[in-house]
Design a protein around this nucleic acid. Structure first.
Lengths: 208, 208
DNA sequence: CTACGATTGTTATGCTATTCACATTTTCCC
DNA sequence: GGGAAAATGTGAATAGCATAACAATCGTAG
């Protein structure tokens, strides 16, 4: 198809998984793959992979499969991670520090470009190669650096207020590590990371 | 209903979200709530919340809604988090440390009970109130402590091998922080935490 | 040069999940 | 005490997603 007439969000959510697997195949110097092989690695049916990709174009060759490098580049382009996005991290506790030090973002299209915290004791401290900035510099600094994405790593009680300030500063994509659902206006995207929620999902299936 | 004849997994996945919101309502000392109010907070339709809950029983009262504390306890029971699950963390880098220090698990039914790492330089080091143990004590220690859940916080290249060892030791629920899909046998549950994947999901919707 | 095996993209089918809509019940206020 | 307002639980209707299946195409081996 290729016409982007409302592609299901659930399909978009799988593209990063495909990208992840393709990245590993590149490391393994595999030149070609198939929907069947990809599906096997990911625990997804080959039909679903072909169907998902068909929303964006024709990337394979019948009889041969997909050129790994080519498909990788195409998906990077679709997801707009063929260039690097600068991000802000708000909250420089244990979690914020772990995020700031994480080396895995760069290869996947992201870079932590600014750190903010409300605690005066942390201001000016260096974490990685960044200096912790006060919250009242949030708007100015995100705009100066062209930041459109932020990660929220503050306690649940403060997360909504932080989100509000980020949105006011022009941030439109939030990755929220605080265990609370955020209310955001139309046009702002939120994703959640809540380890305890994932764990509770699994305990349902465990015998006590 | 209440008969647990194959409840959709996607319903189970929403229960922790409901629980999270109910927990906050308890903090706010709210005594009653409704499917409408809950849905508003979570960005979910009230019909869906009622339908989800109806898989497990009747917890509300017409005209009144749900007693917050009661519904909270009921869902905790359904998810089996009305008692504490001991967990292992494998990989004591920045991420593993942040997980080990995280204070949020206890209130939601979990406790980090053991730390493992393959790096000899880390062995014996104390993190929080735990000592880092070598990988060859993994089976003995998890069995001694009755651990059924583990969090994998090692580089992607080692995650599959670590998962294999954990499963061999009797662990049946894995929370994988490494950016790689794991192959596991029937009966073992896996959940993934991949911040970069969430970020890539959102960049699709951002204008470049 | 031809026949076969492999694999795609896509259409058709079936299944799953969500929303709608309402009978029923409860509370509250006049 | 009675009627209006609020809310649940659920069967029916709708929408969305995943799987199956196949015609078309490609590469290869004989």
């Amino acid at each position: 198809m290729g016409t982007r007439a409302s592609i299901p969000d659930i399909v978009i959510g799988r593209l990063p998984i495909y990208l992840r697997a393709l990245g590993r195949m590149i490391q393994e110097e595999r030149e070609y793959t198939s929907s069947h092989e990809l599906g096997e690695r990911l625990g997804i049916s080959s039909a679903q992979i072909r169907k998902d990709l068909s929303h964006f174009g024709e990337f394979g060759k019948q009889g041969t499969g997909y050129n790994v490098q080519y498909l990788y580049e195409q998906i990077r382009h679709i997801l707009k991670v063929d260039h690097e996005w600068p991000m802000a991290v708000v909250g420089v506790g244990d979690l914020g520090r772990a995020i700031a030090h994480y080396r895995g973002f760069q290869a996947r299209g992201f870079r932590v470009a600014a750190l903010f915290d409300a605690d005066p004791k942390l201001l000016g401290e260096r974490v990685g190669n960044l200096t912790v900035l006060p919250m009242d510099q949030l708007a100015a600094e995100t705009q100066r650096l062209g930041i459109r994405i932020a990660m929220i790593a503050v306690p649940a009680a403060e997360a909504q207020a932080v989100a509000d300030r980020l949105i006011e500063a022009g941030v439109t994509a939030l990755l929220n590590y605080a265990p609370i659902s955020l209310a955001v206006p139309e046009g702002v995207h939120v994703q959640y990371i809540d380890p305890a929620a994932h764990l509770q999902h699994m305990t349902f299936y465990l015998t006590p």
